[in-house]
């Protein structure tokens, strides 16, 4: 596998990149902070990545950086067959309600710009005859829920977009994988009280790596969230109004 990875230096991205490196994948890292990327590149190299782990700058808040970064990844690895996106912004509903500028930033990064990045990736993968596009959305996008209204709205839009991509392009060889993590203990959620069924990044990484191998269209991680969200999606609105979940 020749993977361009946006967001490999932190959280679930770090765990997934390590998991893929230990399976011998070739990796090229995209992110904002070159020094930080260099440290992750060294870490992944020692975890078993093939070839040399390269990296270059790419900022989810700067769409003009997307295309050139993917081209650089492709040039460095002599091709590209997988693109993974784990980068994104998270903020609590209270923080977002109090700060419209933060809301704008989050909606832009997690929906608009992630879609724009995927469009650049999609074109390149299709031109190369297909491949895998694996993007981290969230269970927060499954239902309008009180604690994640704004974050969930961005992720809902992203999930629908990824679903559509998979429907349209799978026959042309492009497999789109939507990852829907539940609560996972990372730096992003540090300071929030973990609910029951909170996941560990390493366990999420193992199930996502398996999904990439198999080409599954949708991954809930930890797996129990598939059941939880099945229930939540089918709760009547009158119940959703009363519960705090």
């Amino acid at each position: 596998m020749k993977i361009a990875f946006l967001g490999a230096s932190k959280g679930m991205g770090r765990a997934l990149a390590r998991q893929l490196a230990s399976r011998g994948a070739q990796l090229f890292l995209l992110g904002r902070d070159l020094e930080d990327l260099g440290r992750s590149a060294a870490d992944l190299q020692l975890h078993g990545a093939s070839g040399t782990v390269g990296f270059c700058t790419c900022d989810l808040l700067q769409p003009p950086t997307f295309g050139p970064a993917l081209d650089q990844a492709s040039a460095a690895m002599n091709g590209l067959d997988t693109v993974i996106v784990t980068a994104g912004i998270f903020a609590t509903q209270e923080e977002l309600e109090a700060d419209p500028a933060l809301t704008a930033r989050l909606l832009t990064a997690d929906f608009t710009n992630t879609v724009l990045f995927c469009e650049e990736a999609r074109k390149r993968l299709l031109a190369a005859g297909g491949g895998t596009l694996c993007v981290f959305s969230s269970v927060a996008g499954e239902r309008g829920r009180k604690p994640v209204i704004l974050y969930g709205a961005a992720k809902a839009g992203l999930s629908r977009y990824l679903e559509g991509l998979d429907h349209k392009f799978r026959s042309q060889g492009l497999r789109t994988i939507t990852v829907k993590p539940g609560f996972v203990k990372t730096g992003m959620t540090a300071g929030l009280k973990p609910p029951p069924f909170a996941g560990e990044p390493d366990a999420v990484a193992r199930s996502v790596a398996r999904a990439i191998e198999r080409g599954s269209a949708e991954v809930y991680a930890p797996g129990i969230w598939r059941l939880i969200m099945l229930v939540i999606r089918n709760l009547p609105r009158g119940v959703m109004r009363r519960i705090g979940f």
Binding site: R32, A87, G88, F90, T92, E95, A101, G191, K193
Partner: peptide, 19 residues
């Protein structure tokens, strides 16, 4: 979109007290 800061995608949050 020029107001978007380019540093730190993960925003620092106040950490609640825990045991």
């Amino acid at each position: 979109m020029t107001s978007l800061p380019s540093k730190d995608i993960t925003l620092p949050k106040p950490v609640p007290e825990t045991e």
